[in-house]
Design a binder for these strands. Structure first.
Lengths: 230, 230
DNA sequence: AATTAACTATGACGGCGGTCACATAATTAC
DNA sequence: GTAATTATGTGACCGCCGTCATAGTTAATT
């Protein structure tokens, strides 16, 4: 692949976006882009963590399985996002599976080489610190939801959170542009698909959630927040 | 306070430990040490986040309150640890309260000045990346425990985790060197103090958990892990 | 030392929500 | 197009665990 194409693909990623052509050069040299088809796995849980990925296009599902086979759906990542977040300057293994949800162009960078470039680019460090900080805030928020709220509220909070990470604003509603099955939503927060089904139908009856012609959820964020008594 | 004393206090903190005297100099210039007595608050939730703290001695409880008054005990931090973790190169507010559990000497550094130094010290960046990476792994692990395990298992996993962050090895057991009340343990994972009481007494009966003369828990980590069916 | 407050232990009760069952609809596979 | 798989919707059941109540113990305060 031509260098210009890699540059173009890198520019989708926020932490590279504002770098000049010269600044990008060493990164372009070590970056590859790969095409992954639907249902492929980019890496499996416990594989040695030797590279870092950035999404140019497509969607990637990050999913973890524990010893007894139970699954936790951690997130669905979209263009511009990076994975995994933990692993810089630390040896280790991938903490989860990465499965392709939609055909995707992925930028792959060996982590040791990326680290070398990183420490000589203060601008890049700053951006990465921001990204990691956001990740920490996100995780703290999810943990808080799990600790302080009952299942009904957890589902509401999940929908609201997904609005931001996997949605867009349409009119005065949020549109979830990633389709999640009830089972997937359940696996994010540790509830059952039946309870998710009942809960969503409950808020549909109140018209806080509707479906558009393509089956995407349209969510009335404000009304849903009212359901949380604050 | 004399500069040498600040240097000595900084050396307790892992990310500063291996820096030379010259490297430490600019940090010493902007660092203060403060003494906080038991039950004081270092900052309150939602205060503007303009500084970062490192513990030289003592213990700090990080605790969050939501709109309805429910409390989440996030962690009890010990010497060498930093707080908060998120906030580098991002404007914002403290996400939680920081309350002094034992009289503490705290190193305080204005975050904007620290950021300036940080970007000119690659070594420091690397260490901070490692610390943030560990924090992310920790949070992911806690989130997974909340999502995939029932209350009994959550309590067991909590005790095991606290062994690492707030304990030491004594013989073939772990000793929890921070005393937590049942209510505090409950507030970490969103259960009730009664359930914690019953669970701990249950594993005490099996001799997987005992008390030493000072009331610290002694935990048989392996035996407890057996309880989790893996 | 006395009083107050906070923590622990334990039983009883009830409800949230997990599990099972089954019908139906929607996708995927061949 | 047909079969097979997967997703959804709902009712019934019931067990885990949150809540309340009470008593006893320990710790904090004056």
């Amino acid at each position: 692949m031509k260098q210009e194409d890699i540059v173009k693909r890198l520019s989708v990623v926020p932490i590279f976006k504002e770098l000049s052509a010269e600044e990008l050069e060493p990164i372009v040299k070590i970056a590859q882009t790969r095409f992954y088809k639907h249902k492929m796995y980019i890496f499996m849980q416990d594989d040695p963590l030797d590279r870092v990925f950035f999404i140019h296009s497509g969607k990637i599902k990050i999913c973890r399985t524990d010893q007894s086979g139970k699954e936790q759906l951690i997130s669905v990542l979209e263009p511009g996002e990076m994975f995994p977040h933990a692993g810089f300057f630390r040896k280790g293994n991938f903490p989860a599976h990465a499965e392709v949800m939609e055909d995707s162009h992925i930028i792959v960078i060996p982590i040791d080489k990326f680290e070398e470039i990183l420490i000589s680019y203060p601008e890049l460090c700053i951006k990465l610190f921001k990204v990691l900080g956001e990740k920490i805030v996100d995780l703290q928020g999810r943990l808080e939801a799990q600790v302080l709220h009952n299942t009904f509220e957890q589902i509401i909070l999940l929908l609201i959170r997904l609005c931001k990470s996997n949605g867009e604003i349409v009119g005065r509603r949020y549109k979830l542009t990633t389709q999640f099955t009830n089972r997937e939503l359940a696996n994010m927060i540790g509830t059952s698909r039946e309870t998710v089904s009942r809960t969503i139908n409950h808020v549909k009856k109140k018209d806080y959630v509707t479906l558009d012609e393509n089956g995407f959820y349209l969510i009335d964020r404000e009304a849903l927040e009212q359901e949380l008594f604050y």
